[in-house]
């Protein structure tokens, strides 16, 4: 096994809205950035048989997800002229209306930031071993399926 430090992407519970403002503020000193592209995933109150989704409970194969994320990151940096990329995904319970995914891509110019951000979100949904369980009530839940 090769030893390398893997960047964590997981946060227990929802991602606080304040974190988004704080992270934008933290980039104000990076003078080569001209564009930030941000994607926020929010838990939706989908209608289900027997009620409405009240929360999503996330679990992951953490070690594999971080390995995979490192590869995705490397590939996107090779493909687009990016300055930086930050991904935060929730684990555990996130209530309806709360943020479960925060993707933040920065570049000198908007096109690279926007294109890379979109591609990154698609890859996070398709390639990272993360599962969401949609909670309707204490007795009723459904395993989430990505469209």
């Amino acid at each position: 096994m090769k030893e390398k430090k893997l960047r964590n992407i997981f946060t227990e519970g929802p991602i606080p809205a304040q974190k988004i403002a704080d992270d934008v503020q933290h980039h104000s000193g990076k003078n080569d950035i001209g564009a930030h592209s941000i994607f926020l995933g929010q838990v939706r109150a989908d209608a289900k048989d027997g009620g409405t989704v009240t929360a999503i409970e996330y679990t992951a194969y953490i070690e594999m997800a971080l390995e995979k994320m490192a590869l995705i990151r490397e590939n996107l940096f090779a493909k687009y002229p990016l300055t930086c990329m930050h991904v935060h995904h929730s684990l555990g319970t996130v209530a309806v209306g709360e943020i479960c995914l925060f993707v933040f891509v920065s570049a000198a110019h908007r096109k690279a930031a926007i294109d890379a951000c979109e591609e990154l979100v698609e890859q996070i949904k398709q390639e990272l071993p993360i599962w969401g369980k949609e909670i309707v009530s204490e007795q009723l839940s459904y395993w989430k399926e990505n469209k």
Binding site: H89, V121, K125, W131, W143
Partner: peptide, 9 residues
Amino acid sequence: ALMPPFSGG
């Protein structure tokens, strides 16, 4: 690891 289809995000 046995993993069903992913549903993150």
